[in-house]
Nucleic acid binder design. Structure first.
Lengths: 224, 224
DNA sequence: CAATAAATATGAGTGCGCTCATAAATAATT
DNA sequence: AATTATTTATGAGCGCACTCATATTTATTG
């Protein structure tokens, strides 16, 4: 009968992650790093999952243990940008005290600036993220979750202004409407070939002025 | 020295198309017919180009002599709907005398009704049509041409209203703005799982009311 | 009617995203 | 430590969209 010299669970100490979890994180980061390099170098279509895997030091099939599809891999970067966008806004600063339209348009503007370095490959996947996906997987659930987070972020902004009487009670549809506007601007931006994307900036400015004027007549709203 | 008993060009008569042109049209129609059947039966992703070709009575590679990509094949149906949408509007009827917002929203509404039968496969390609395509081919030029036609159609509607003073001078951006709205509604519609797409219809109606109210205050516009 | 030229059809071949049976690595148990 | 169980890595294999050298068909020419 052997003597039990070691505890049943060896890796429960606070600073010690199991080797499995450790490798998992290492591999995930290696894949993301390789993918970002190749996407930016060759664009989404010409960067093959084989090469991404190889550059990450893994076998071909392993990539798909970490990301369900190549598209999911690219969407990761979009999601990261959205998370950072919300964090950026919530960081205290002078923007917090600006009028609502300016705050909303600053959000779109900042987003465009953030995704600019990825433009070459983002266009290939951005719009697909909206499509109703037939497969309901944990990963697509994650995406829904992020979407929900973004919408409630916008909803919070609008609700605060509604409470102050700056806005008619738009409710959820208001947030959805802004999300569509946000999307439309990204679409426009992706297709904008003018120098420095000045057409997009002009359109954004025009919309900002329009929205500001609308709000100046707040008393006249008579929504049912 | 042989006697010339037949003319140099045999197929120049008005009703006689050359056998080549004849076959070309026949094959093209066969491909479109087979594609539509399979897309509606299996959806875009599960309908293979092999099967479409086979059903059209052609070899695999032949399909790509007619359509540059599988996506182009599906986009054909979207383009056809857009052409028919314009034709539908331009057919004289009571709609012509309705206020501008109603006419614009009738256009979107009619479009949604027209593409409803294709919804299952249209979602897979619709948004991609907007993406800046890196390959500049005759086919993508065709698509640009259609886009231009749609924009100038909308531009014409807006210009007539601007001339009557019903609208501030929106110019090209106005047409582009409506196009983005149109697109946004289709996106919303594609993702709308409510019974009978009633959420989309409600949103459309809300926008219609909003636009109508805006126009009622036309005197107050002071666009630069 | 040959003979030649031009357009079109063909299908084996290519690299792709992705799957899956299996092997290897790690954790848990005795 | 040895054994068993669980998780993860592997890469040959699959069907796909798409290409391209070649064969076939159609048009033109003498």
């Amino acid at each position: 009968m052997p003597i039990k010299t070691s505890p049943r669970k060896r890796n429960v100490g606070p600073g010690k992650a199991g080797k499995r979890a450790q490798n998992k994180e290492t591999n995930r980061q290696a894949i993301l790093k390789a993918a970002l390099e190749l996407f930016r170098q060759k664009g989404f279509d010409h960067a093959s999952t084989r090469e991404i895997s190889r550059r990450a030091g893994l076998a071909e099939g392993t990539l798909f243990n970490y990301f369900r599809t190549k598209e999911d891999l690219a969407l990761y970067f979009l999601e990261r940008e959205l998370v950072e966008l919300i964090a950026w806004y919530e960081h205290p600063g002078p923007l917090q005290r600006a009028p609502l339209p300016e705050r909303l348009f600053a959000i779109v503007h900042h987003h465009l600036e953030q995704i600019a370095p990825y433009e070459d490959f983002i266009g290939a996947v951005y719009l697909r993220a909206l499509q109703p996906s037939s497969k309901l997987s944990p990963l697509s659930a994650e995406r829904r979750e992020l979407n929900r987070r973004y919408l409630s972020f916008i909803r919070g902004l609008l609700a605060a202004s509604e409470a102050k009487g700056e806005l008619p009670p738009l409710g959820e549809p208001g947030a959805y409407g802004f999300a569509l506007f946000h999307l439309a601007m990204i679409t426009y931006w992706l297709n904008d070939t003018s120098a420095g994307k000045e057409n997009t900036l002009a359109a954004l400015d025009r919309c900002l002025q329009f929205a500001t004027r609308l709000l100046q007549r707040q008393g006249q709203w008579d929504w049912q």
